[in-house]
Design a protein around this nucleic acid. Sequence first.
DNA 1: TTCCAGGCGTATC
DNA 2: GATACGCATGGA
Length: 264
Amino acid sequence: MKYEVMGNDIILYQPDLILSETLDCGQAFRWELTGENTYSGYCIDTPLTISGSDGRFVLKDTSEEIFLNVWVNYFDLETDYSEYKRIYSSDETLLKACDYSKGIRLLKQDAWEALVSYIFSQHNNIPRIKGIISRLVSHYGCFPTADVLAKETPETLSFLRSGFRAKYVIDAAQKVASGEVDLEKCKILQIDEARQELMKIKGVGPKVADCVMLYGMHKLEAFPVDVWIKRAMENYYPNGLPECALGSQGVAQLYIFNYIRNLE
DNA sequence: TTCCAGGCGTATC
DNA sequence: GATACGCATGGA
């Protein structure tokens, strides 16, 4: 990882990153395009404006400490994504998908934030998911903790206009706040056990559970199957994923998802 | 207007 | 265990 401090900014050199592909591909819902090659957003409550292209990026008004403690992890900067692309190149479809989106990285989001976000994602579209989360954060002035949301009711959350999903988020908050569902434990558990634990929450099924494990816990074996991936599997991989994707299905899923979603 | 959206709970068989 | 169906809301 190569970077330098320049005043209040961090200059990051990262060949395997394209901001639009990584921040606007449906894995995170808190980033907005605020200028040319510029995105502003949050990791929980830490704000950032990042801009750049062609391997050189500026992280505005941050510190080296925050960069090292938050953003290196969030952007998974210690991982060499060219290695994933090299491994996947033995499969024809994955090769095309990686070639189509050379700058995708798997973000390491907060588990609780991912849980809330993906509960809101069900039977919903990305602009609306972003709107709901934006109203959530601006209402509380921060991303609300499980303790805070556990005290709400569907009526008090009506300002979110999140429809039937409000009661699911409240159930998630109550179970996390009480310890009935332990997100920290899920991070350590084997994937099948963690999935069972997460699915104790109303409104969390296999798809949302796998999204939480992939995007919020960086479990690379997680493989969220939505309508797009289901279609891709039927078309390209009727006999299952190729050998080269085993062990990092979640990363492969990102490339495939972005590829097929933009084909039509 | 009608259709659909990164699913899931519930009822029914 | 498999298979329909409803669900709140808003954008296209």
